[in-house]
C-alpha cells in the first residue's frame, strides 16, 4: 500500500469516526441536567433493593461484575509489585535506626492511628448508605497503619504489620468476592446476582442484600493490598541496599 493510500484510508476512518461521534454527542443528555435516562433507571433499581447509596448499588449490584474486574486489576498490580520489588541477589537488608520524632508529632500520630482506623471502618461499613465504600475506607485503614512509620518509627510499623498476614488477607478478600458471586450461582440465579439475601430495612446497615458483604470484601482486599504494596516500597526505600557499595 502506498503512503498516499494509507493516508487516504486514515482520513476516511477519521472522518467516519468524527461524524458518528458528533452524532452520538448530539444525542447525549445535557451536561448537569436534572433528568438522565441511565441515572433514573439506576436510582429506581437501587431503591427497589433498599440500597440508599445508589453508587454502591451500581458498583456492587448492577455492575458487580465490573467491580470484580477492577478488584482483580488491583490484585494483579500488587502481585506484580511484590515480584518486581523483591530482594534480589547482591542486595542486603539493613535495619534503620530509630528516629527521634518531636513529641507533639509522635503523640498526634499515636492518637490518630485508632481514630483513622475507626474512620476507615466507618466509611467501609456505611458504603451502602452514604458516600464511600470498600475502596475508600480500605485505603484509609491502610493509611492509618502507615501513620506509625510516618509519625513514630519504622519499627513501630513493623510490629503491627506482619506482611504475610496481609498477603493472606488480600487473597482472602479477592476470594470472598468470587465466593459471594458463586453463591448467587448456587442459589439458582446468576453469578453475583443480588437475589440471595433479604433486602432489609432501607437506610440501615444490613440493607441492600449482598451489597454490604461485597463492599466489605472489597474493603478487606484494598486495605491489605495497599499495606502489601507500601511494604514493598518501604523495604526498598528504607531497608534494602545495594550490597556491593558498602
Amino acid at each position: 500500500m502506498s503512503r498516499r493510500l494509507r493516508m487516504l484510508l486514515l482520513a476516511l476512518g477519521g472522518a467516519g469516526f468524527a461524524a458518528l461521534f458528533a452524532a452520538a454527542c448530539l444525542e447525549l443528555p445535557h451536561f448537569g441536567a436534572a433528568r438522565h435516562p441511565y441515572g433514573e433507571r439506576a436510582v429506581h433499581a437501587a431503591l427497589a433493593r433498599h440500597t440508599a447509596n445508589v453508587v454502591s448499588a451500581v458498583n456492587f449490584d448492577q455492575r458487580a461484575f465490573d467491580t470484580l474486574g477492577e478488584e482483580s486489576i488491583l490484585f494483579a498490580a500488587v502481585l506484580g509489585t511484590v515480584v518486581l520489588l523483591r530482594q534480589t541477589r547482591g542486595e542486603r537488608q539493613v535495619r534503620p535506626e530509630p528516629v527521634a520524632v518531636a513529641r507533639p508529632v509522635r503523640r498526634y500520630s499515636l492518637v490518630m492511628v485508632p481514630v483513622a482506623l475507626l474512620t476507615g471502618l466507618y466509611v467501609v461499613a456505611h458504603g451502602q448508605l452514604s458516600p464511600g465504600g470498600g475502596f475508600q475506607g480500605g485505603v484509609v485503614v491502610a493509611t492509618a497503619l502507615h501513620l506509625l512509620y510516618i509519625g513514630v518509627d519504622y519499627q513501630a510499623l513493623e510490629r503491627i504489620r506482619p506482611v504475610g498476614g496481609y498477603e493472606v488477607g488480600d487473597a482472602a478478600g479477592e476470594a470472598a468476592y468470587l465466593v459471594l458471586g458463586a453463591a448467587g450461582l448456587l442459589g439458582g440465579s446468576a453469578f453475583l446476582a443480588n437475589t440471595l439475601l433479604p433486602y432489609g430495612t432501607f437506610n440501615t446497615i444490613p440493607s441492600g442484600g449482598t451489597v454490604p458483604l461485597l463492599n466489605a470484601a472489597i474493603g478487606m482486599e484494598v486495605a491489605c493490598a495497599v499495606v502489601v504494596l507500601l511494604a514493598r516500597f518501604l523495604d526498598q526505600a528504607v531497608e534494602i541496599v545495594d550490597g556491593s557499595g558498602e
Binding site: V94, R95, P96, E97, P98, V99, A100, V101, A102, P104, V105, Y108, M112, V115, G151, Y154, V238, E246
Partner: peptide, 25 residues
C-alpha cells in the same frame, strides 16, 4: 477539631519535628 489539630501538628513537623533517620551500616 481534627483539622486544626492536624494543621498545627503538621506545621510543627515541617519546622523540624521529624529528623532524617540514620542507618546501621
Amino acid at each position: 477539631a481534627l483539622l486544626i489539630t492536624g494543621n498545627v501538628v503538621a506545621s510543627r513537623a515541617l519546622a523540624g519535628g521529624i529528623p532524617e533517620e540514620a542507618r546501621h551500616e
